[in-house]
Design a binder for these strands. Sequence first.
DNA 1: TTGAAAGCGCTAACAA
DNA 2: TTGTTAGCGCTTTCAA
Lengths: 341, 341
Amino acid sequence: MSNQVAREVKSAVTRSDVARHAGVSTAVVSYVVNNGPRPVAPSTATRVRNAIQELGYRPNTGARALRRGVSDAIGLILVDISNPFFAEYAVEIETVAHQDGQALILGNSLGQAELERELVDDLLGRRVDGLLMTSVYADADPLADLRPDVPVVMIDAAHPVPGRRSLGSDHAQGAAMLVQHLIDVHQRSSIALVVGHGQSPKPDRREDGWKRTLMAAGLPLGPIARNAYTREGGYAAGQELLALDQLPQAIFASSDQQAIGVLRALHEHGLEVPSDIAVVSYDGTAESEFAWPPLTVARQQVAAMAAAAMKMLTEPGPDEVHRLFPPELVIRRSCGCGQPR
Amino acid sequence: MSNQVAREVKSAVTRSDVARHAGVSTAVVSYVVNNGPRPVAPSTATRVRNAIQELGYRPNTGARALRRGVSDAIGLILVDISNPFFAEYAVEIETVAHQDGQALILGNSLGQAELERELVDDLLGRRVDGLLMTSVYADADPLADLRPDVPVVMIDAAHPVPGRRSLGSDHAQGAAMLVQHLIDVHQRSSIALVVGHGQSPKPDRREDGWKRTLMAAGLPLGPIARNAYTREGGYAAGQELLALDQLPQAIFASSDQQAIGVLRALHEHGLEVPSDIAVVSYDGTAESEFAWPPLTVARQQVAAMAAAAMKMLTEPGPDEVHRLFPPELVIRRSCGCGQPR
DNA sequence: TTGAAAGCGCTAACAA
DNA sequence: TTGTTAGCGCTTTCAA
């Protein structure tokens, strides 16, 4: 009874309570809980397990972390997990992490450099075993003055990041696949580009891919509308393109979100997609499949990237690497495929 | 130099390194870092701060947690953060938590009871200061045998949860607002319902709201299509309704995701929304605004719920409470408003 | 096979 | 105003 009460009163049960209850030392409890490193007689082990059960003992992960020097937790810093692409990415990462016995601590930088700093700092203070992140900074190393002493992997890096491990999708290739498809299969010769603002000195690789593919095909470059990688940005970009003297025959949007915005602008103008104008986009989130019409996309290999990111974090390797994953072309209806002639 | 090397070598700098470097005791370092509880002479404090700076010292959050008995971390268990509603919810929660000095540990149960259990267990082992969760279980208390010794708040609860604190949106009211609008403003007299499978003995409160509003208006109940609360579920439900002898004049979908699926089914059938059939839905995620046509919705007050959830976790209060937040009616085009006659 | 005990980094009561 | 020191709960070496 007094046990009952004590537990109700929220006295956390510790290993020494268990030891006392089972009539053994705390070391033995440890051996049982961790299944080593010393052997324990079966009968003793059973007594300990019963005590654990009865007392409702649960090892304190933090204390163990302090002693062992590893926290079994990793940090994930995203700009904004309500962006569907990152949400899908996060699910994959969390799944892999959990299978790996790692908990995931999440932070949203919301595009604010200062907040990003705070989050990194907090995570390092928690001695996470690793840090996965996308950075607000286009180029500068956001961690420079934070001197992280744990592995860091930049998980949405189009370009190599000096001195860091990084990975991302091959944006140039994805863009090229999409544009090539519009040219080869749908004979579009005027293909517009919707892309983000050029914050970075380096151009968006999707812009490269679009440009090179058009040039290689001997086609003129279509109009470019630059705006945020959001639905709102795409909407504004779409309106911009619609205000042009001559409507392009197709639009390549650099993110699903932008494409969704573009579609809205086109619909509001009473345009039919793909018959009046084709639209394709980059990312391949679930949302793209349920847009109207369903979007033909270059789908990023989110699961593969998540697994690779966790691996880069855990396994030894060069301090600077950059892995690029090829996106997959997913044909749906917005490009003109599967349409009645 | 040797300092340099030592740091490179990844020897974590501890409070006693700082103390030695500054020529003070570890207690003083603590007083400076925590700004108390004892006063420190300004000149001493400066010396300590310089040492901290030079050595790149960062307090070990885990050690502090062990000593103080609070972890400054909370757990969040969602079914799936790639569901946009939960993603938006999570952003709000993380933001509030961060402002509150709490880190957020995220877990996705993916609809698997066993996984949910594992996540809860892990989080309790980490001694989170509180647990925010949605449960896979419709009714049974998923925590019963886990004896959580921290505050738990069920954050997406349509009904009170026995013995627990919980909160959610007033689904019945939201449904009623939407249906009433379709009746009063758009004179729709045949309104279908798309809702989830009845896993729970308790009916979905949105079904209640829909039913009562129709009955109060003296209208017949429209057809019901039951399917998952996903885009796919909505798509299947939409097809089901389209196969009926008589098409309803409007559809109320219980989630944005379902509405998106319904819209796809309608579009594929060549139906115009809202002129051929109106569609409204529940949730009000960002996606709903960019659907085609933009969806009229009952928007859940995500930010308010997130703040309230954190408050319920932190502040003392009754062990069992259930707070319901009224959704807001957001009129867009899918109901027929703003359409040319 | 088991136990005693040191110590992970930190806080804070107590002493000076 | 500063220092000494006892733990927080755990792992693991070393001795029995």
